[in-house]
């Protein structure tokens, strides 16, 4: 059976509508909102600040601490139990690994940069949306960064490779979910995971498609960051 038309009738390489805004959490050092289709991620960055508990302190560099959370009402009606889980612990780790390559915290030994990402509404691609929002929030907070990070969830449904999965595609039986994060200026990959079965050729193609999709997301991230500081005189 072939996947002729996507469930939401998008093109196979087409992203859902995306929206980004920087500076949405006033108390935070930096913050950003990223919306892709129905998936909404809000990231707030606090720090660099003193790190407690002390045993986590690293005298050679500041550390990045990620706290990803899907809100209890965020899913499709099933109750998402609040609090951490094995899954959210893993996602914290992969988001941290996706962002660390661009961040330089050597000037802040023993300190921490805390990144909280909350998702009030989810429709697949959550860890990718979290990474996109977190990258903008870190830049907003003035953290030294070599590059931003963009991310998108690519997948395979039946015989077609699709870009930017929705929940139905993500949970499709015999489908595949491949979240990918890219550093836009160098094209390097900082997150690559896979659920399901694909061929090596599929993977190469998915990475290539992800790079194209991530450029579009990067443009939106750039615009949102610059928009933060645009102000007409006399306002």
């Amino acid at each position: 059976m072939a996947y002729e038309k996507r469930f939401d009738e998008r093109g196979f390489d087409e992203l859902r509508p995306i929206e980004a805004k920087v500076g949405v959490v006033k108390n935070a050092s930096g913050s950003a909102l990223f919306k892709i289709g129905k998936t909404v991620a809000i990231a707030a960055v606090y720090g660099p600040r003193e790190l407690h508990p002390k045993f986590l302190q690293n005298p050679q560099t500041g550390i990045l601490r990620i706290n990803y959370n899907m809100m209890p009402f965020s899913g499709h009606g099933e109750r998402v139990r609040p609090g951490g889980s094995r899954r959210s612990k893993e996602i914290n780790m992969v988001i941290q690994n996706a962002l660390l390559p661009v961040i330089n915290l050597k000037e802040y030994p023993n300190a921490v940069v805390d990144v909280y990402v909350e998702l009030p509404q989810t429709d697949a691609g959550t860890r990718c949306a979290a990474i996109v929002a977190a990258a903008m929030a870190l830049a907003d907070a003035g953290v030294m960064m070599k590059d931003l990070v963009s991310a998108v969830a690519v997948g395979k449904v039946e015989d077609k490779i699709v870009v930017d999965l929705i929940y139905e595609e993500d949970s499709y039986e015999h489908g595949s979910d491949v979240p990918i994060a890219i550093l836009p200026n160098s094209g390097k990959v900082s997150l690559l995971q896979m659920d399901g079965d694909i061929t090596p050729e599929d993977l190469q193609l998915m990475i290539a498609k992800a790079k194209i999709a991530c450029q579009k997301i990067y443009d939106v991230q750039k615009a949102a960051l610059k928009e933060r500081f645009k102000k007409t005189q006399g306002d």
Partner: peptide, 8 residues
Amino acid sequence: TIAVPGEV
């Protein structure tokens, strides 16, 4: 001009 991290 305003520049974002990584921008040339």
